[in-house]
Computed example of a mutant assay.
Amino acid sequence: MSHAVTGSTMLRRQIGRKFEALRKAAGLTMEQAAEQLDRARATMHRIENGAEHVRFRQADVKEMLKLYGASVEDSELLLAMTAATRENKNWWHDYIGSGLPKWFQLYIGLEAAASNIRQYEPELVPGLLQTRAYAERIFKMPGGSIDTENSDEQRRAIQLRVERQALLTRFSAPQLSVIINEAVLRRPVGNATIMAEQLHQILKAAELPNVTVQVLAFSAGLHAGAMSGSFSIMEFPEDNHGKEVEPPVAYLEAATGAIYLDKPHETAAYNSIWSDIAGRALNESRSKSLIHEVAEEYSRA
């Protein structure tokens, strides 16, 4: 299922999670919120569960945001998201989030909700493991999703990338499994100092109990990832009824947009690719040794 079809249901579940988080941050039960908003508890329940037929009138959304004491940023985002459900848009193409690719807000929300994230990267260090200096070099590249002429946009994008890394050390952090191609280590981004610092950052992250990093060495030869390019597979926790809050999603990013695949045969195909590259990659210990070895080469350069 591509983003054009999946958008509405994913978007509604995302809206529901954000409203639930804001309500809880405001210290209100669902009953208290329903009473103060003069809405039925069942309606609040449907909103927070991402039900398909909830209509989000702008006045109602503003009233909820006011009651919950939402920040300007959260208010802008939720107003844009709920407006998209009324207009049946592919909202992540239309929401102008300064410093973000227009389709990327959905990914950030899914990433934050995931219990298990697997990423294969053939070219670059994954965003959750990047240093600020490395990220700065990437965002200066032409042809990316950030306007290279807009320094404020670049700064905000870099700051967001760094802030997202808190995900790995938060309470109930997701399990992150990363496989990077050896080319990620060997191809310099910036100078040798930036690369040495970046590789040490990967090693530091790999010490976390919920993070594993493996390298797919050149010696592995042809592998399934050569056909797929970079991708992420996200799996989600179960709710109180033992049901996943989202079906597993495979995420593919391109220069002009993103694709979210959540049909069982689609995620099965990416699980199969993952199994192939994971089987060919160096184990964790040998991967760390190789990363350390290449980091030392950069340090001596």
Rank of each mutant, 00 (worst) to 15 (best):
K18Y: 00
F19C: 08
A21G: 06
A21K: 10
A21P: 04
L22P: 00
L22H: 03
L22D: 02
K24M: 15
A25F: 06
A25N: 07
G27T: 09
L28P: 06
T29H: 13
T29R: 13
T29S: 13
M30P: 02
M30N: 02
E31T: 14
Q32E: 07
A33F: 09
E35N: 11
D38R: 12
D38V: 09
A40V: 06
M44C: 14
H45A: 11
I47K: 02
I47D: 01
N49F: 04
G50D: 05
G50L: 06
A51K: 15
A51V: 07
E52P: 01
E52S: 12
E52R: 13
E52M: 14
R55Q: 13
F56P: 01
R57K: 14
R57Y: 12
R57D: 08
Q58P: 05
A59G: 05
D60Q: 06
V61P: 01
V61S: 02
K62C: 14
E63Q: 09
L67P: 03
A70D: 06
A70F: 05
A70R: 01
A70V: 02
S71N: 09
S71H: 12
E73T: 07
E73L: 07
D74K: 03
D74F: 05
S75V: 04
S75P: 04
E76W: 00
E76I: 00
L77D: 02
L78N: 00
L78W: 05
L79F: 04
A80R: 06
M81S: 00
T82D: 02
A83G: 12
A84N: 05
T85A: 09
R86Y: 01
E87N: 12
E87H: 11
E87S: 13
E87Q: 11
N88P: 04
K89C: 03
W92G: 12
W92T: 04
D94I: 03
Y95N: 01
Y95P: 01
I96Q: 15
L100M: 15
